[in-house]
Design a protein around this nucleic acid. Structure first.
Lengths: 159, 159
DNA sequence: TTGAAATCGTGGCATATGCCACTAATAAGT
DNA sequence: ACTTATTAGTGGCATATGCCACGATTTCAA
């Protein structure tokens, strides 16, 4: 465990765990971990949690343009497009050029997409429930609130 | 803005923003957003925040095996190996087979890797400082503490 | 009206991350 | 010692995400 053959001296307790102080690393690590848990619960639907999030946001926004969808997810337009790929390929999502401005494409769920979304939503509720159970509902709400602040324009500007 | 041409009816306030209730989606979104901020600050070093995290953890653990490193980051062994690729290619990290157990490979920073780590650490401190400034130091510590809980074995079991 | 500027989406390339199948090597059990 | 786990890493494939250059369109301005 403490190997360190030919390596640096072992960390002293005081300087131990440098990375645990990094807000960014902590966030990513938590996201990786929680992602796996949600993914496992959603698995029967064949959707990854990220894909479920995409479907949810499309459903929620109604009929967003690609740019609107990307902005709402704080995601790069190109990245979002790439992620949409598998969903389009599998017939869950469809793109339509807007007639009045042919630069624009609107994203919509297909009927199959709506069905898959509703199927996955059941599983999502289960995962979400387990989270609230394990972490505490109020505590979870507080956490989401803090995270929401991190993604706000105001925070970005203050940073 | 409210387009919704041929789309679903607009969300009522009550059901608005479905996704903001998803703990997992909130976490990923925040991670994306914060990642971009840290990345921007680290940019002069040529390292992404994720790569800086990897170097930090290698430095911190001293001379970990690949499996130890992956476990400590709650990361898939294979994923970590892939991420190590660019760092190895750029001569910052090196792998060595362990003589006593030739299945094992130990990960170590090269001298160039140590130098790059120290260079990036300066920038990281700047980013971290900005975060603490914008978010509040105590609040940040609390957030990290909550995130740490999420990544604990106990939470995974309770989930 | 016509050419510059801004907007939207696409494609290519690169890293981040995960899963699975497979090989190598060591540890356990009989 | 042999057979059977178990453990460590590798490689391939797939999705997640981002950046940049580019092409299509629309808007603005001279």
């Amino acid at each position: 465990m403490k190997a360190d053959i030919k390596g640096r001296a072992p960390r002293t307790p005081a300087e131990a765990d440098l990375l645990s102080f990094c807000n960014n690393a902590a966030l990513r690590k938590a996201a990786r971990g929680l992602g796996k848990l949600y993914d496992a619960v959603l698995e029967p639907s064949g959707l990854k949690a990220t894909q479920y999030s995409l479907l949810t946001q499309i459903y929620d926004l109604g009929n967003p343009t690609m740019a609107e969808l990307a902005r709402s997810l704080l995601m790069d337009l190109s990245a979002m497009r790439h992620s949409l790929g598998p969903l389009i390929r599998d017939g869950l999502v469809r793109l339509r050029v807007e007639a009045r401005d042919r630069r624009v494409k609107r994203v919509a769920l297909t009927p199959a997409g709506v069905a898959k979304f509703e199927e996955a939503a059941q599983l999502w509720r289960k995962a979400q429930g387990r989270f609230e159970q394990a972490f505490g509902a109020a505590r979870a709400a507080k956490l989401r609130s803090e995270l929401r602040l991190l993604t706000s324009e105001g925070f970005k500007d203050a940073f």
